[in-house]
Amino acid sequence: MKRIQMLILLARKGALGRKIKITLRELANELGISPQSVLRLFEEMEEEGLIEKDVLGRKTYVEISTEGLAFLESLCDAISEALYNGIIIGEVISGIGEGAYYVRQYSHLIREYLGFDPYPGTLNVRVLFPKTVFDAFCGVRPVILPGFSKEGRTFGDVKAYRVQIGDVEGAIVIPSRTVHPPKIAEIVAPVYLREKLGLKDGSRVTVKVVRG
């Protein structure tokens, strides 16, 4: 564990592709161990090929090695795979009242592409985990609801990701023109989700991405 903490600390300090000057006491204070323990840790990590170290007089210079970077990348991949596995945890919030209008406009496409008649409104969920809605959709292809024109107004493409909340299957819908990854998930479903699942503002919910 201390090796991982040390590698992350060195990476934050900029020991990537170059050697940086460090002091044992500074690292010891940040890791909550003694300077002697830092020295031993460095020796072990150098033997394992995780870091490269030079000592010039009283100055110590350290760089994360190629092997150390590969180790951090594999650790990052393992954490991402464990955490970002198609689960969204959030809390129910009230929308601004536009959901019902847009669901009515796209209802024929939802019926055609997603296979259900939507309740005229969306359930709005503030995402608490992961950071954004898109983080939960890694590797998942959306269903594209194509844009159209109606009564002189243009409605753009919408990305729809099939999800399950409770025992109800629906979809999170995101306008294709969205620039910033959204922190609010708008869910369409064939039923009134607040009533069906007994939800109110502040209710904690878990949303599962339906793959395939």
Rank of each mutant, 00 (worst) to 15 (best):
F42A: 10
F42T: 06
F42K: 12
E44A: 08
I51Y: 01
E52F: 07
E52W: 05
V55F: 07
R58V: 11
T60K: 12
Y61S: 10
V62A: 13
V62S: 12
S65Y: 11
L75G: 08
I79E: 14
I79L: 15
S80V: 09
E81Y: 09
G86C: 04
I87M: 09
I89M: 14
G90P: 08
E91F: 08
E91H: 12
V92F: 00
V92G: 00
I93A: 01
S94Y: 10
S94D: 14
G95S: 04
G99K: 01
Y101F: 11
Y101R: 15
H108W: 14
H108Y: 15
H108D: 14
I110K: 10
R111T: 06
R111P: 08
E112M: 05
Y113D: 09
L114N: 03
L114P: 05
G115T: 02
P118E: 09
G121A: 01
L123C: 03
L123D: 05
L123R: 02
N124T: 00
N124L: 00
V127T: 08
V127F: 00
L128E: 07
F129P: 01
F129H: 00
K131L: 13
F134A: 11
F134T: 09
D135Q: 11
A136M: 03
F137M: 11
F137R: 02
F137E: 04
F137H: 05
F137Q: 04
G139I: 01
V140M: 01
R141S: 15
